[in-house]
Nucleic acid binder design. Sequence first.
DNA 1: CGTGTATTGTACTGCTCGGTTCCAAACCAT
DNA 2: ATGGTTTGGAACCGAGCAGTACAATACACG
Lengths: 197, 197
Amino acid sequence: MARPREFDTDDAIRKATAVFWEKGYLDASLPDLLEGMGLTRGSLYKAFKDKKNLFLLVLAHYDDEAVGAARARLTNASVPDGRDRIVSLFAALYAAVAAGDTRGCLLCSAAAGFEMSDPDIAAAVEKGMSGIREGLEAALRASPVHAGLPEAEQRALANVLLTQYIGLRVLARSRMPLGIVEQSIESIARLLDVEST
Amino acid sequence: MARPREFDTDDAIRKATAVFWEKGYLDASLPDLLEGMGLTRGSLYKAFKDKKNLFLLVLAHYDDEAVGAARARLTNASVPDGRDRIVSLFAALYAAVAAGDTRGCLLCSAAAGFEMSDPDIAAAVEKGMSGIREGLEAALRASPVHAGLPEAEQRALANVLLTQYIGLRVLARSRMPLGIVEQSIESIARLLDVEST
DNA sequence: CGTGTATTGTACTGCTCGGTTCCAAACCAT
DNA sequence: ATGGTTTGGAACCGAGCAGTACAATACACG
């Protein structure tokens, strides 16, 4: 017996994700968000409490969506060799940059910025990073060349790949020459071929 | 026939570097800078024009200081094997993180943030990044294992190392577990051992 | 067809920001 | 001493920020 909400909550979060992704948490102003989400101050505060809470919801959404996609790619059983899954992850990253996507990674940008001083945000970022790392480890276990490695080496390799992933997405955001991204990815593929020793 | 300046310009820039390094460009407020530099608004604007100009001076100073140190390490002829120079660079990075330095890299933070939308700042950041990459390439040329590689592969390897460097410094800033940094660096050392194929 | 209620839109509140202006104090040359 | 300059400090500016209060609105239900 009340006026119904005129917008869809999930849709609003998706739109907010786009704004935060492009501008970052601190640099996304409330007017930016309101315009991008297509609603007004009153509605936003009623529905999402405040800016930080909205960002946490966005991070959770991003974890489901983007991190989930990366994990799905890394654990995709229809690609039998885990190494190929990892290469395809970096290839997708390159394709996105080549297509003009300079947004980088929402998590990586947050990780590099000052927003990490908030413990709630830091925890959400860490959760997403762990998700990617776990996907990488799963892919390595499915790679004939790497499955036999000691577990410690597998973890170390997964971490170097995660670091590479983060570095590349930072570079993508900073509009570095595309060649750098391309060459790094080529080296990653080569690293995965020879690391079996 | 005029009153002399009461502060040392270079010293002021060094102090400003510390402030920007800790807080980032956008998040370093003028009061932050004034307090850190020990001078007042009037003096700052007389001496440095405005905040952005000060930041450009700081970036130039950082390029001389920090990037110069990295390059010196990578081109240090008293370490004959270039591979060892590269490993020592990453070891120094690890040591800094282990010692509690969570400032990461001034250039890397700027590269990941919104300040890149300013072309002057972006150019200065790119210049610093190129300096590190050139140092890495020089070290690879001095590495018996890698000197014989095709030039394209050397460049690609230098880029993957640069990406790794950036990723690690972002991770350092985001207070990731130290073990991740450690394992990534171990993998880097192993990568440099086997990449000779 | 009203009435109640949740949502909406907007005006407003403090606050902080980067940057400017103004003036008295400090200094040097003469 | 003294006059000319430049510093250093604080008041001030307009703009933009996140967040709030409140009135107008539109629906569901009796």
